[in-house]
Design a binder for these strands. Sequence first.
DNA 1: GTCAATTCACATGAAAGAGACCACGGTCTAGTG
DNA 2: CTAGACCGTGGTCTCTTTCATGTGAATTGACGA
Length: 398
Amino acid sequence: MKQQTLHEIFGNYIKQQSIFKNKDVLSHSYIPDITLHRDNQITQLASILSPALKGNKISNLFIYGKTGSGKTLVTKYVASELEKQSNKIKTFYLNCKMKRVADTEYRLIAELSRMLGCSIPPTGLPTDEIYRKFYEAIDLEEKNIILILDEIDALVKKIGDDVIYNLTRINQELKKAKISFIGISNDITFTETLDPRVRSSLSEEEILFPPYNATQLKDILTQRTKEAFAEGTLESTVIPKCAALAAQEHGDARKALDLLRLAAEIAEREGSTKICLDHVDKAEDKLDTDKTVELVKTQPKQSLAVLSATINLVERGQQNIQTGDIFEVYQEICKRGGLKILTQRRISDLISEFDMLGIINTRVISKGRYGRTREIRLPLSKPLIEKIKKVLAENYIL
DNA sequence: GTCAATTCACATGAAAGAGACCACGGTCTAGTG
DNA sequence: CTAGACCGTGGTCTCTTTCATGTGAATTGACGA
């Protein structure tokens, strides 16, 4: 019986004509031939990088703009075109936000060295040894190396700006090669937090990527849908809707593409041959939920206990939840679950981590005579909370 | 009524410890010719 | 003689604790009008 239905599902799937013509076009990593509405930035970037073609060192460059504004796309594109022009130019791209790649100074340098082709053990060597190997690897040939550090703000937040300072000074030690940096950040205020020395050497040039507006997003989506979908699968209102939703969120092209892809997937799963508004709504819902649930799943037990305490308090209907309240409930949860109880200091950090992840909202408030604390709110919808509770239950914390 | 001092309940920072992981070099051991 | 197992040393990484310092407005209490 069960096998019968499975058979049907697979059978139907094969029979069904796919909505997608080429799904990859909608993925983040896809680089289209023509990047729309970024001519200005491409020209700027190209003119800053072009001295490399004559073997000169280019200025270090700092690029900023919100997520999904095309920074990475444009930079990668221009870099690869540049590389094609001259074999003396090598560009490397590193996303600093990737876990286990740039968590520490050691790992960052080790990863960079690996890109340059030397093999570095994941741990066990002194850091200055790694630096030495890194220098050697760079200076092997007479090359102009351009290092693109994406999400550089995450890097600095984790390990401080010393590394950047060290990196920008490498050139003085190099005999043959030259190295330049392109830092990409979506935090516009980021450079202000840097050490002035680092700031001046890192951002000799700057390029700003403004967010896309709804019309521009529409163009981008239209461009991609031509390749991604078979003709006539889109209802005419779908693209404007996706564009509008993404434009609300600081013009995030990535989100627009995600929405469209997910809407199409949902439509396909429902057996529909057309993508309509309803699918977009569902996609938006799912996009938010999935992101949060996945995030929660990756959290360690202690953090889950803290989250559980928060949900517990919210469901009891308590107003103005404070760090102290959470700590009390958390202790109970630990006792029941046989978990080690961490100090309030640590819990305070865990709470602010959740805040950064956007799972909870916190605000530091001073209540005068009655102290200073964080006021914590849970901005999640009921169904989402239920899903999170399921995750907690799976981890035996509830 | 005004104004400075006090006070609370944490926030935030810095340093340091514990326990995990890993590389490396030296030593030991068993197997081979 | 040699390959592989094993061990000690020295390094990093992550999570955590401990200790110290900071913070901002409600409250308090002294003071003067």
